[in-house]
């Protein structure tokens, strides 16, 4: 049901989520999806408990993006298999587009990520990119915190390569771009500057042969250089999800990037910075630049988000409330 006992007790829910209890995970994700004011308050409470009870910054949040048909889901499935063999537990947030007319959506990615029904080490939640609802954003970020708390690897898979998808992956520790051989898209993305975001590039379907090798070489020449993030050389890999080749190397590259990020304050600060940028985008999306202006402008908001020690979700909520208040700043 919508609010059973577990959800009503945010502290207990947080403990159960950290233990990886599947029912608690499902309920926590439902709660974070819930837009009713009472649920938002519970959600804020829950996320605070989740963070407080969790010293350090565990896990690895990976964003997987790329054009439709590049085989992201099958590649994710192949990665899941590798991670499971290595004893890692994996949580996935799979994002599908929704219908702009009805708001309805078909969430089909699970089909391609089929895992054994009795494997407790994998958890997949599909999300619709709910356009008119203020974007996928409102759910995917807090949900990723839940996945990070419960799993060794948390993954966000997004369709398409629009700016929004790049935003989503920008808030991850590691962003992986999956290229489709021979589509010509890659060059377009290159021109659009989109390929400056990913930390790992992979050309899927290397079993296609020459076409895949050509795409690999196109990307290779352009990206054999340091990432703007610093201290990281972007690897350009080749794999085939269906033939099962190159998957271990891809998993290794992703892990290597996570290791470079390190731990402790530095990682925490990075995550907070990324998330703050992302929260700013969400506020702009919901209230426009006028709304952000009411809060003192971009820099002021970012500063405020970076400085305070309270949870970012609570800050987001409180900023939203400020703007939503009757007679408030947002006219």
């Amino acid at each position: 049901m919508e609010q059973p006992a577990l959800t009503a007790d945010p502290a207990r829910l947080a403990t159960a989520v950290r233990r990886g209890e599947r029912r608690a995970l499902a309920e926590a994700l439902n709660l974070l999806d819930d837009r009713r004011p009472a649920s938002r308050r519970l959600a804020a409470d829950f996320l605070r408990h989740l963070q407080e009870g969790q010293p350090g910054d565990p896990g690895h949040l990976i964003g997987m993006t790329g054009p439709p048909g590049a085989g992201k889901s099958t590649l994710t499935a192949a990665l899941i298999a590798v991670w499971r063999r290595r004893g890692l537990r994996v949580g996935v947030l799979a994002v599908d587009p929704s219908s702009p007319i009805s708001g309805g959506a078909l969430l089909g990615d699970r089909l391609r990520m089929k895992t054994s029904a009795d494997d407790d080490g994998v958890f997949i939640r599909s999300l619709a990119c709910r356009g008119e609802f203020g974007g996928l954003s409102a759910e995917v970020w807090p949900m990723s915190l839940v996945m990070l708390a419960a799993f060794d690897v948390a993954m966000i898979e997004t369709v398409g390569v629009g700016q929004r998808e790049i935003d989503i992956s920008r808030m991850c520790d590691t962003t992986c771009f999956v290229a489709q051989p021979g589509s010509g898209d890659s060059v377009q993305f290159l021109k659009a500057g989109i390929l400056e975001v990913p930390h790992v590039l992979v050309v899927n379907k290397e079993d296609m042969g020459a076409v895949a090798r050509r795409t690999l070489s196109e990307l290779g020449t352009a990206l054999g250089r340091a990432h703007t993030d610093g201290n990281w050389e972007v690897p350009v890999l080749s794999a085939s999800a269906t033939a099962g080749t190159g998957i271990d190397a891809l998993a290794d590259a992703l892990t290597r990037h996570r290791e470079v990020l390190g731990a402790g304050d530095r990682l925490r600060a990075r995550r907070r910075r990324y998330q703050a940028h992302w929260i700013l985008k969400r506020l702009q999306e919901e209230f426009g630049s006028h709304g952000v202006g009411q809060l003192g402008g971009e820099q002021a908001v970012l500063q405020q988000l970076a400085s305070r020690d309270t949870s970012l979700f609570e800050q987001l909520e409180s900023l939203r409330q400020t703007l939503l208040q009757p007679g408030g700043k947002h006219a």
């Binding site: 009805s102 708001g103 309805g104 089909g108 089909l111």
Partner: peptide, 18 residues
């Protein structure tokens, strides 16, 4: 269901009850 506004999870055929 999608046309009506539901979010539909469908994984195709031959699934176990579990």
């Amino acid at each position: 269901g999608r046309d009506a506004g539901f979010e539909i999870v469908y994984e195709g055929i031959r699934l176990t009850p579990a």
